[in-house]
Design a binder for these strands. Structure first.
Lengths: 153, 153
DNA sequence: ACTGATAATTGGAATTATTCCAATTTCAAG
DNA sequence: CTTGAAATTGGAATAATTCCAATTATCAGT
């Protein structure tokens, strides 16, 4: 897993902003998450990262994921009490929700337009300052999959 | 903790619909949750229930909460990876979100109007059948509390 | 390059909410 | 009452995550 130069810049400046160093481990974990569209768990990330960094420890994967989340590069997603999943967070201003198919276990991103976020904000008492919004929808995907044909997952 | 006759009816019929019996333990756990506006954890519910049923086990509290959730009487609420919290679910058709104050730890219900739920549905690919929506907003409550005066939690 | 100070990583132990399980108790119906 | 199913119980087990002390890597200043 190699990190494109541009992504490397992104990582390094985000870390620097928080007074943190860029390391091989952080680069690699970031590269794996950035390349993963399937919302992997820490464990799955661990095994993917080990393909390029066999000696990395699970503790470091957890530490790094926490670091990346706090730098705003990665998002942690929780469904019920399942193990946390992680996804890349490219544009900081853009919000997305998650659809969790209870049949297949797959997770889909759902883009949330600015208008929707505004509506949501309007529903809250005005003195509640929003830091984070977690919206998870679960159900079953009975539709077309990306390959274009219909199947029940 | 005594359960009002009407609530008892609700519980008994909901349980009966699922082929389940009403028991002292279930009545009491239900009564505690129904009377709790603070979104208690299983542990908190356990200690409240023990005031009327000192011999109840934590396992039963967990079992019962699961039962009540599956009967649609109680809602399980998760913030990040914190212990699950529970709240009464009076009207089955009515949706609400949760605002989690990161300063005080308090949880507030946020009513979601039907129009908002419709908007949300419209954002999803049409073949996604929604079973459940979990919306958690976290941030800080800098506003008036129910007693009417302003304080920083 | 070298050195010291600081930060990051590591392996393994610890934590903790929750689930599991086998044994007992309760319940409702015949 | 008896009997079979359902519910409860205490304690053990699970599993994701966090903690910790020891090692290793990195950076800044010489």
């Amino acid at each position: 897993m190699m990190l494109p130069t541009q992504a490397k810049q992104t990582l390094e400046s985000a870390l620097a902003e928080h007074g943190l160093r860029s390391t091989r481990q952080r680069e690699c974990v970031f590269a794996v998450v950035a390349a993963s569209m399937d919302h992997p768990t820490a464990d799955a990330i661990y095994s993917r990262v080990r393909e390029s960094l066999p000696g990395i420890s699970l503790a470091t994967v957890y530490n790094t994921l926490e670091t990346l989340v706090s730098c705003g590069l990665v998002r942690q997603v929780n469904f019920e009490r399942e193990p946390s999943r992680y996804c890349p967070l490219s544009e900081p201003g853009k919000h997305h929700a998650h659809f969790h198919c209870t049949r297949s276990g797959k997770v889909f991103d759902v883009h949330l337009p600015e208008s929707f976020m505004k509506d949501l904000e309007a529903l809250l008492p005005p003195m509640f300052r929003i830091d984070k919004v977690d919206l998870c929808i679960s159900g079953q995907n009975r539709g077309e999959n990306p390959s274009g044909h219909v199947e029940p997952d």
